[in-house]
């Protein structure tokens, strides 16, 4: 129990941000027309590629002789970029199609 209280007091700022972000996320997605479901999913998918920032941090912090960390970090960056670039590009194409239909 003490550990839990300690955890909360150490991470209070993060807990606030998480809770407020949850509400923001819920509010901005409310009442979306069904035609936009797939593009929105795709756009959100591209945003989850923000994990690339962490992958870059891994590489920046790793020791040039630590090959395991370098290789894993390298792959993580490639995968993260795939998620970001592919995600936004696909969303853009979907929305192009959407416009032509109208």
């Amino acid at each position: 129990m003490n550990e839990l209280i300690e955890f909360i007091s150490n991470n209070l700022q993060i807990i606030y941000i998480v809770i407020l972000s949850i509400f923001v996320g819920v509010e901005i997605i409310k009442s979306i027309p069904a035609v936009l479901h797939t593009p929105l999913m795709s756009g959100a998918n591209a945003l989850s590629g923000v994990v690339i920032v962490g992958a870059i941090l891994v590489m920046l912090h790793s020791n040039p002789t630590d090959y395991v960390a370098l290789v894993l970090g390298f792959i993580a960056v490639v995968l993260g970029v795939l998620n970001v670039v592919g995600g936004f590009a696909v969303t853009n194409r979907m929305l192009d199609m959407f416009k032509k239909k109208k």
């Binding site: 941000i17 996320g25 479901h37 994990v51 962490g54």
Partner: peptide, 27 residues
């Protein structure tokens, strides 16, 4: 992504990840 953001105390990862997490559930 948000959890990794906590690891690095990185706000853009934290907020970006949580946004996708909560918006994704609603979607």
């Amino acid at each position: 992504a948000a959890i990794t953001g906590v690891l690095y105390n990185n706000m853009v990862m934290l907020v970006g990840g949580i946004l996708v997490g909560s918006a994704g559930i609603i979607l």
